[in-house]
Each structure stands twice: as structure tokens, then as C-alpha cells.
Lab assay of single mutants.
Amino acid sequence: RLTVMSLQESGLKVNQPASFAIRLNGAKGKIDAKVHSPSGAVEECHVSELEPDKYAVRFIPHENGVHTIDVKFNGSHVVGSPFKVRVGEP
């Protein structure tokens, strides 16, 4: 089962990169992540390998409000996905 680490749920800033990590815990497959902005825009997140069992997911929010992040592994949502994060002040 995958572990999502260091996902900041609030206090993110517009046009500043945000990232979190995913540990695969021995699982093999493909991570896919997309961020949905409050206006409905959908953007791919950048996924990069940090070490053999750990990946970083990076995105840049372009507007204030609550964004939804879909994180999928081999086509299925990971536990807790979709995640909600707040950009800007509430």
C-alpha cells in the first residue's frame, strides 16, 4: 500500500511550487497525478523518482481556493485520493 507523505493541506501560495512525496512500499507500477483548480482547469503534476521506492509529485497552483489532487497508481486512486489542498488565505 502506498504512503503519501508531507502533503501540505493549507498555506500554499499561487504560482509557487508545491510538492509532496509518495513511498511505494515495494509496489511496482506507474504514478499519475492531476490537480483540479477551483475554476475547473486540470493540470498534470510532475512526478519524479527521488529514490527507487520514493517519488516526488510537484505542481504549481495558479489561483486561490481549494484544489483537488487526484493521485493514481496503476490507474486506481491511492488511499485518501482525491486530496484537497487550500491555496491562499481562507
Results as ranks from 00 to 15, higher is better:
85 V>H: 09
23 R>W: 05
17 P>E: 13
89 E>K: 06
67 H>Q: 10
26 G>I: 01
84 K>A: 09
27 A>M: 14
77 H>M: 11
48 S>A: 10
9 E>R: 04
10 S>F: 08
51 E>P: 07
80 G>I: 01
32 D>L: 06
3 T>R: 15
31 I>D: 00
56 A>W: 05
53 D>S: 11
63 E>H: 12
24 L>M: 11
4 V>E: 10
51 E>S: 07
60 I>R: 05
8 Q>G: 03
2 L>T: 10
32 D>I: 07
12 L>S: 06
29 G>Y: 01
73 F>D: 06
12 L>T: 00
66 V>Y: 11
6 S>K: 15
87 V>P: 02
14 V>N: 03
75 G>N: 13
88 G>S: 05
1 R>D: 10
28 K>P: 13
16 Q>R: 11
65 G>K: 01
17 P>L: 04
31 I>K: 01
10 S>V: 04
69 I>F: 08
56 A>R: 09
68 T>H: 11
74 N>C: 09
66 V>F: 11
51 E>M: 06
76 S>P: 07
48 S>W: 10
84 K>V: 07
28 K>Q: 14
72 K>H: 12
81 S>L: 01
48 S>C: 13
36 H>C: 10
22 I>Q: 00
17 P>F: 04
80 G>R: 08
67 H>T: 13
51 E>Y: 06
61 P>M: 02
79 V>D: 12
22 I>H: 00
39 S>E: 11
53 D>T: 04
63 E>S: 10
89 E>A: 11
69 I>M: 06
6 S>Q: 07
12 L>M: 01
30 K>M: 14
39 S>K: 12
46 H>G: 08
26 G>V: 03
17 P>Q: 09
66 V>C: 13
17 P>C: 12
50 L>P: 10
59 F>S: 01
11 G>I: 15
10 S>G: 13
8 Q>S: 10
86 R>N: 13
15 N>A: 06
86 R>A: 08
55 Y>Q: 06
27 A>K: 12
21 A>E: 09
24 L>G: 04
88 G>D: 10
3 T>N: 15
68 T>L: 10
33 A>W: 06
80 G>Y: 02
76 S>V: 07
81 S>C: 08
66 V>K: 15
52 P>K: 09
85 V>Y: 15
45 C>N: 02
57 V>K: 00
32 D>S: 12
12 L>V: 03
63 E>T: 13
49 E>T: 06
56 A>N: 14
34 K>M: 13
8 Q>E: 06
74 N>D: 13
35 V>E: 03
45 C>V: 07
77 H>Q: 13
21 A>R: 06
25 N>G: 02
51 E>H: 13
85 V>S: 15
5 M>G: 13
59 F>H: 06
16 Q>K: 13
68 T>G: 13
75 G>R: 11
87 V>C: 14
54 K>A: 03
2 L>I: 15
29 G>M: 02
80 G>A: 11
59 F>C: 04
20 F>T: 00
9 E>V: 02
58 R>I: 02
59 F>Y: 15
61 P>S: 01
59 F>G: 00
15 N>R: 02
59 F>R: 00
27 A>F: 05
12 L>P: 01
4 V>W: 11
58 R>A: 07
70 D>T: 12
13 K>Y: 08
10 S>M: 12
5 M>T: 15
73 F>C: 05
45 C>I: 14
53 D>N: 08
13 K>A: 04
79 V>S: 12
32 D>R: 06
12 L>W: 01
71 V>F: 04
27 A>G: 10
56 A>T: 14
44 E>N: 02
17 P>W: 06
64 N>Y: 07
37 S>F: 11
31 I>G: 01
35 V>Y: 14
48 S>E: 12
28 K>G: 03
74 N>E: 14
41 A>M: 04
46 H>C: 06
84 K>C: 10
80 G>S: 09
